[in-house]
């Protein structure tokens, strides 16, 4: 049902400056892994490179395997069709399209074995607020509604693995909790998720594994219960207190 995501020797560079150098990162099937790190650490660059998607066209080298199949270097839309879906940082919805039009494009219901497909109604079940706003333009949604729609759009593609880049940014705490809990429930249903989150405390509530990224490199990785006490995380992200 779910996919194992395996990244090896990934190097990403903008021009001459290398932004990401990750030797190995594995997300086990049906688990949630969080990537945390300071601004500019390379979190977005990392998840974008996995999906081979970017507005800046950086140079990407390395292997990205989903259930053993190397998908690195394939066109972004091909990767989506294979079941690896990115929800990019910031604007993940179309402002000029209504909520329903945003959700229109989806994977065929027979997308392949082990893929759970979501109808538009399934997305509305998950985020009832979107049903109320179905005829509203994406550009007129609140930040929270927009992020729900971005996640909904991603689910419509029937992903096996989902990469989420700061889905909670700019949201009220109530929305952050709701969104992260929904994501957790998707993982419990079998989805494999790699989550970039700057709200480390909130991410710790839902994630299985934490990876700490610094200047493009993974400097610490481990199960959430160990990482909670890791001094580098405690100092920088949990306000110096205890976990």
């Amino acid at each position: 049902m779910s996919a194992r995501l395996e990244i090896e020797n990934l190097r990403v560079a903008y021009g001459a400056s290398q932004a990401v150098a990750v030797d190995r990162l594995v997300v086990e099937p049906g688990t949630l892994a969080a990537v945390v790190g300071a601004n500019g650490a390379g979190k977005s660059t990392l998840v974008n490179a996995i999906a081979n998607w970017s507005r800046a066209a950086p140079r990407v080298e390395g292997a990205v395997r989903m259930d053993g199949e190397d998908i690195a270097g394939r066109a972004a839309h091909e990767i989506v069709k294979r079941g690896l879906q990115l929800v990019p940082e910031g604007r993940g919805v179309f402002m000029g399209l209504t909520v329903e039009e945003n959700l229109r494009e989806g994977a065929p219901s027979d997308a392949g074995p082990g893929r759970r497909s979501y109808s538009i109604d399934d997305v509305y079940e998950l985020f009832p607020r979107l049903r109320e706003r179905r005829s509203t333009a994406g550009g007129s949604l609140s930040g929270g509604e927009r992020q729900m729609l971005a996640v909904g759009r991603a689910l419509r593609m029937a992903p096996k693995s989902l990469l989420l880049d700061e889905p909670s940014i700019g949201l009220a705490p109530r929305f952050v909790a709701l969104l992260l809990r929904t994501i957790r429930s998707l993982v419990d249903d079998g989805l494999t998720v790699l989550l970039v989150e700057q709200n480390v405390r909130a991410a710790m509530e839902v994630t299985d594994v934490v990876h700490l990224l610094e200047r493009g490199r993974l400097i610490a990785s481990g199960p959430v219960d160990e990482m909670r006490d890791d001094p580098r995380i405690v100092e920088a992200y949990l306000g110096g207190g205890h976990g």
């Binding site: 998607w53 507005r55 066109a75 839309h77 989506v80 990019p88 993940g92 994977a107 759009r153 593609m157």
Partner: peptide, 9 residues
Amino acid sequence: VLTRLAGID
């Protein structure tokens, strides 16, 4: 660019 992420060529 965002359209690519809807699996559209």
